[in-house]
Write a protein that binds this DNA or RNA. Structure first.
Length: 274
DNA sequence: TCCCAGGTAACAT
DNA sequence: ATGTTACATGGG
């Protein structure tokens, strides 16, 4: 275990880990404990210093927390009105996290018609059942392990109706040679089409994977919270199709729509309704 | 007991 | 094209 101290200019660790984009971090005494791929990571923040204890390299950490994103410039793009400016200011320093594609895909299939705490518990079940023992914790299971899992093993993870989709995704990646990492090199629309070939992956899950794992910052995942926010703020509470919302997001937030989405999601989930 | 949750696929108009 | 519904599991 090495200790890294990294200067992080516009960065808030709590907002970044608490906003709901990742599922394997827990608050500890004076920071956070998490699992990134097969590494245990302790993270805390003192001022503008990010202090990380793990086997990850400094480069991995900068990559994971997207410390190379120019948030100042991104804020200029998405701070289009007073509401947006207020939300940006409130969660100043929230950064997207660059996730492993496979873990991200399965995590967001788990999110379908589900509550956030339960998503975490399903993922935890998968890891303890099928993940590598990394000493006091479990890594995220590889596709092969899930594909080859017995019916009763998989049932123990309590995935509900998502189980068939998760096994199917594992088959596609392990057995059918789908190269998730290759999608990163494709443009947004092509990569989205490819992801939606996977059974259980619709617009929302595909956009999450594109945003969180494939650097497609224009992706704008639309879930119930985002829908409520967008209808209230931009459509006078009228019922509108997801396609209309996507259109407006594209026009309004442009190439950084995904950043706007994450701020809005966090805002709407924690206090938007009131 | 009923209702619903970071949606999706299947089936109906 | 657009609208409706079942779906596993668990917590309010």
């Amino acid at each position: 275990m090495k200790i890294h101290q990294i200067r992080a200019h516009i960065f808030d660790l709590n907002h970044t880990l608490n906003c709901g984009q990742v599922f394997r971090w827990r608050r500890e005494d004076n920071g956070w404990a998490g699992i990134v791929l097969n590494s245990i990571v302790m993270a805390r923040q003192r001022g503008d210093m990010l202090v990380i204890e793990s086997n990850l390299s400094e480069k991995d950490i900068i990559n994971y927390f997207r410390l190379d994103d120019d948030l100042g410039s991104i804020y200029k793009h998405i701070g289009r009105n007073d509401v947006m400016k207020k939300i940006i200011a409130k969660y100043n320093g929230l950064r997207l996290i660059r996730q492993d594609p496979w873990e991200c895909l399965i995590s967001y299939i788990c999110s379908i018609n589900n509550r956030i705490p339960q998503i975490g518990s399903m993922i935890q079940n998968l890891c303890t059942q099928f993940g590598d023992d990394i000493g006091g914790a479990y890594g995220f299971p590889r596709p092969e392990r899930i594909y080859k899992a017995s019916q009763s093993e998989l049932k123990k993870c309590k995935l509900g109706f998502r189980e068939k989709w998760i096994r199917g995704a594992a088959k596609k990646v392990y057995d059918d040679g789908l190269q998730l990492s290759q999608l990163k090199n494709m443009d947004y629309q092509s990569a989205k089409r490819a992801l939606m070939e996977i059974d259980g992956v619709g617009h929302k899950v595909a956009d999450c994977v594109l945003l969180f794992s494939f650097d497609k910052l224009e992706a704008f995942p639309i879930d119930v919270h985002i829908k409520r926010f967008m209808r209230r703020e931009y459509f006078q509470n009228k019922v509108v199709s997801d396609e209309k919302i996507r259109e407006l997001a594209r026009r309004y937030f442009g190439k950084y729509a995904g950043y706007a989405q994450e701020y809005l999601f966090y805002y709407e989930r924690s206090e938007g309704g009131k």
